[in-house]
Design a protein around this nucleic acid. Sequence first.
DNA 1: AGCCATGAATGACTCCAAGTCACGGAAGCA
DNA 2: TGCTTCCGTGACTTGGAGTCATTCATGGCT
Lengths: 253, 253
Amino acid sequence: MAGIASNAVELPRYISRHAHRPRSEAKRSRIVDIAMQYFAEHGYHAARVGDMAATLGIAKGSIFQHFGSKDGLFFEVYKRAVRSFPKYLDALADVRAAGFFDVLYYWLVRTEHLLHEDWIPYRISLLGNYGTDLVLKREINRFLIAEDPYGTVAFVRFGLERGELRKDMDVEMIVSILDWTMERFQDALLTAELDPGLFRRQGEMPEKKEARIRQFLAVLRRAVGVASATPAPGRSEPRRIAVANLIAKPNVP
Amino acid sequence: MAGIASNAVELPRYISRHAHRPRSEAKRSRIVDIAMQYFAEHGYHAARVGDMAATLGIAKGSIFQHFGSKDGLFFEVYKRAVRSFPKYLDALADVRAAGFFDVLYYWLVRTEHLLHEDWIPYRISLLGNYGTDLVLKREINRFLIAEDPYGTVAFVRFGLERGELRKDMDVEMIVSILDWTMERFQDALLTAELDPGLFRRQGEMPEKKEARIRQFLAVLRRAVGVASATPAPGRSEPRRIAVANLIAKPNVP
DNA sequence: AGCCATGAATGACTCCAAGTCACGGAAGCA
DNA sequence: TGCTTCCGTGACTTGGAGTCATTCATGGCT
């Protein structure tokens, strides 16, 4: 690991200092692609920069030339992975029209499909959230704050404008609650390994999952939803969305 | 890193296979002590096993003899750190008598004091939660599930028995919600670095923190508390606890 | 075309920390 | 005292991150 962790004054090397030529940009992109596969497949530590270079048919030094360090490479990979995820408001228009909590429901159910289609970026985000050094994690958090890649802030405003969320809370509090619980709940849904607490007893029964999702959303609704919108039990919980809709791609830009 | 990450069948080395002699136990303990300091101070990667050995005045090989790998050593350190934390129900008896949410309030306010008294174990738990390899993280999660070191399950039962928590939710769901949000909220309170989202604007203003804590607890109460106990605004929120009480040690066993 | 300047690529090299192991010594035991 | 078992040791191996002097490619300029 480079001397990033020290109390040095200089910036971490992986904050790129100058714009890159278009030619080089294509190569960077190729490297990030392959690196993403390696990190996803082997985890951060077991992924070897040398192997990536070999696969790409280039010299290891080249990779360091471009990204400065393994951390720097991973950071780029992480950014790309996270940016590839849809934002909350990318849900289909009619789902969006149905309201804030229906959008959440939509994504929770869809997540699994997204995962099976393409597990690599998800695994990368998992590594970034839990499986690297704290120093890098700090950089990652800065990035998440700066970019809000899931569009949580806009989504919360959307909910506020529709009068579905409480107005007596700071927006940041709602955003944080949403980010925290959604992240952990999705992890629990997807990786029984990482967080077996919620799903350890039963072996993946889908209708149990469905029930969990509904229960979780009910909790969220009570927590941050406006009181008047809290539905009588059984009535206005999000309608089950037809499976066909769930499998269709969302309108990602 | 040892070959733990591979799909080998054998157990990770750091699951100790045989009971240890008492003589050796004392030494193990000394090693864990020093290692905890090093990990806390430098982070996982930057902490050098060689340095620890030098400080202890023993050979590096000895450490590996005892713990098998750096991961194994860290796992022991992590367990000790986490076990040193108080459980929810270790709150003072009169706080406990005041009820479920008062206990939460008590701990959220106290956390800061605990931290300043002894930041090392906290930093270790942070490393375990976010700053190591995913493989180790899995082991850590197993441990957390098996030991429930904060006594969350017992605490939730306590809340249920007092009629302060909703009976229409699975216990695991309440436990998970509580664990997730409390962990993240505490991290946000304590390390503006790690999660600057909630506290980035203002610079540590204590009354702002106090307000955040109350707001957060109100959210939790709505989320998992029984509807009847939801207080009229301003009335039965947890009473401010006298500072003298907060600085006293809790009755940790 | 020929020439130069700048950026990109190379791969052999260094560095360094994790992890190993054959050996010597101490402690328990008869 | 002799035997066994465990412990500690430190020189050693391994292997991957990161470096750098050199070579190569590109594209602008006259």
